[in-house]
Design a protein around this nucleic acid. Structure first.
Lengths: 193, 193
DNA sequence: AAAGAGATAGAACGATCGTTCTACTTCACA
DNA sequence: TGTGAAGTAGAACGATCGTTCTATCTCTTT
């Protein structure tokens, strides 16, 4: 058995590796999960691991890439749903709330990763910075289309609120944080008028 | 040379150990800093380390205890300053902003620690939960004295805003986040009326 | 004067870290 | 048909992890 079995062109072993690592990194932290754990749970050999990822840090960056792609996909889906710009802002807020409730119950993958990588020049921190900048500008775009006043400032505040929601949802429980998040986000976005 | 040299009754070696570890843990992350690093930079022997801290995790908990005590001290100072309850809320917000700008430029010690400790039953996570609960109730007390409406809900929202400020200050730069934080916090606390 | 706690110094424990290596097999494609 | 990439299997590298140990010295307290 070997090689490219998936439709995307990526090898099956690589995808299993990436998915297993993503779950472990998110649930237990990055430094806390060793290469041995990952290859054992992915059912793959060390040699196969290093064939696809030159080092563990490359795998970490790929993990953040998966998280980034997931969120971009959610945005694309929302925009492709044919909702009007005015509605879209509300959909985004609801989507973020739903994401924290369902998938990201251990906090934000990017915030958590940054906690473990102090060097701003590292590949991991670059990935975090790029993701945050994309997210901010995407919000600004949506807000601009909905003709909100000062989309730039509002987008910045919504980024902060999402950070707060993910951290608070993890440490205090989402049911305690959700009302505050919804109220603050809708008011910030100007949806309460 | 030996033993208790400080006025507080704690040994000098223990205090050097704790201060050194606190700086390293905060700046570089907990799992990333080994015991060897700590004892080397503290100028202390392994045996001395384990005399004062049964395990590394005890040192981690002591580190969070130091951070907790610092913030409690700041609150006590603000309350002892003789400011009126109405002013106190504003002082607290300014104090938080000042803290992020000066001391906590690598994020929140408790949020960062929680990112590395997934088990909610662990001593570290318990310390995080206790600190957050104290902070929330302290805010509620101050807001209640200032006769804000719904001190409970407002305190919860201010906790979220502080989380956002510390995360955003670390990852996006405090100068970008500060205006949003000040605006949102003063409005949430009802100081803009 | 005796006792004990706190410090120093340094060797050593087994376990795990991330990484590299050789040897052999299997499949896709030119 | 043969070349090469992708897979399995497993030994081994040096480094570091957190922890334990013995041995000796110093100071404070009784």
């Amino acid at each position: 058995m070997a090689a490219r079995t998936t439709s995307t062109g990526a090898s099956a072993a690589r995808e299993r590796l990436l998915q297993t690592a993503s779950e472990l990194f998110y649930r237990e932290g990055i430094h806390a999960v060793g290469v041995d754990r990952i290859i054992a749970e992915a059912g793959v050999t060390r040699a196969t691991f290093y064939r696809h990822f030159p080092s563990k840090e490359d795998l970490v960056e790929a993990y953040l890439g998966v998280e980034d792609a997931n969120i971009r996909g959610a945005f694309d889906a929302a925009e492709a749903s044919g909702a009007e710009p005015g509605q879209l802002v509300g959909l985004v807020i609801e989507g973020l709330a739903d994401d924290v409730a369902r998938h990201h119950t251990r906090g934000c993958p990017f915030i958590n990763a940054a906690a473990e990588y102090p060097d701003p020049e590292s590949g991991v921190r670059r990935a975090v910075a790029e993701h945050r900048e994309w997210f901010r500008s995407e919000l600004e775009k949506v807000l601009g289309a909905a003709e909100a006043d000062d989309p730039g400032a509002t987008a910045g505040q919504l980024v902060l609120l999402r950070d707060a929601a993910m951290v608070g949802g993890y440490l205090d429980g989402w049911e305690r944080v959700r009302p505050s998040f919804i109220a603050a986000a809708t008011r910030t976005a100007g949806l309460d008028r």
